[in-house]
Computed example of a mutant assay.
Amino acid sequence: MTPDELAMAVAAAVATMGTEAAVASGGRAVGALVRLVRERLGRRRGDEEALEDAIEHPDDQQRIVALAEALLSAMADDPALADRLREILPADATPAADGGNHFSGRASTVVQARDIHGGVNL
């Protein structure tokens, strides 16, 4: 995984699961990831704001990209950070080569699909 891909995967994972990780004890890997990112970006002026914005607005791609850019900058300053992020990034947080599906949150019914040909009735 390239540094750009790592930064985007971490930014997306933190943004989409960051709020849940703060309240749920089950997502230990995500919680560790959020804590590490919060600790490292909290040391950098403006980067903590990018983190908070991404967590508050996980569907805003521009905010995810801003967080990824902050992470890239932090990784450039501290190459060991990239290694640590790779270690604790949950495997299901990395996008699959074919696009993959990801659901995070609470719902009574979730349907994920790919290449549907024809109608779908629920």
Rank of each mutant, 00 (worst) to 15 (best):
A96V: 05
P95F: 00
A68I: 12
D83L: 07
G100E: 08
G105F: 00
V23R: 11
I64Q: 12
D77H: 03
R38H: 14
V10M: 08
S73K: 00
D78K: 01
A15S: 10
H57N: 15
L122W: 10
I116R: 04
L41Y: 03
R63E: 15
V10G: 07
V110L: 06
P3S: 14
R35C: 12
A76Q: 10
R40E: 15
E48Y: 00
M17V: 11
G118H: 06
M1T: 15
A82G: 14
L51M: 07
S25T: 13
A76C: 05
D77W: 02
L41H: 02
R44P: 13
T19G: 14
D98F: 05
S25Q: 14
G27P: 10
E39N: 15
Q62H: 14
V14Q: 07
G46P: 09
R35F: 15
E87Y: 00
G99I: 04
A68W: 09
A50F: 03
A50K: 07
L51Q: 05
E69V: 07
E20H: 10
T16L: 14
V30L: 15
A70G: 03
G46L: 09
V111I: 12
L85C: 07
P95W: 01
V30F: 12
G105L: 03
D77I: 00
S73Q: 02
A107N: 04
R40W: 08
R106A: 09
T109W: 03
D78C: 04
D60M: 06
V23K: 10
I64S: 05
L33G: 03
V14H: 05
E20R: 08
S73R: 00
D53P: 07
A9N: 11
S73E: 01
I116Y: 01
L85P: 04
A50E: 08
D47Q: 01
D98K: 00
R84P: 08
E48F: 03
A96N: 10
A107F: 01
G42E: 10
L33V: 11
D98M: 06
E20T: 13
L72I: 04
L51S: 06
A12V: 15
E56G: 13
L6Y: 09
L67I: 11
G118E: 11
A97P: 10
D78Y: 03
A70V: 01
L81W: 06
A13R: 02
G119S: 08
R84Q: 12
V65I: 13
A7L: 13
V110Q: 01
M1K: 10
A80R: 11
D78Q: 09
L6W: 09
D47I: 00
L6D: 12
E20G: 09
T16D: 15
D98V: 04
I64P: 08
A11Y: 05
I116H: 03
P58W: 05
H57D: 15
V111Q: 03
G99N: 08
E49F: 04
V30D: 13
A12P: 12
R45S: 11
A32W: 12
L89M: 08
S73H: 02
S108K: 05
A11I: 08
L33F: 09
D92P: 07
A15L: 10
I64A: 10
S73P: 00
R28N: 14
V14C: 12
E69G: 00
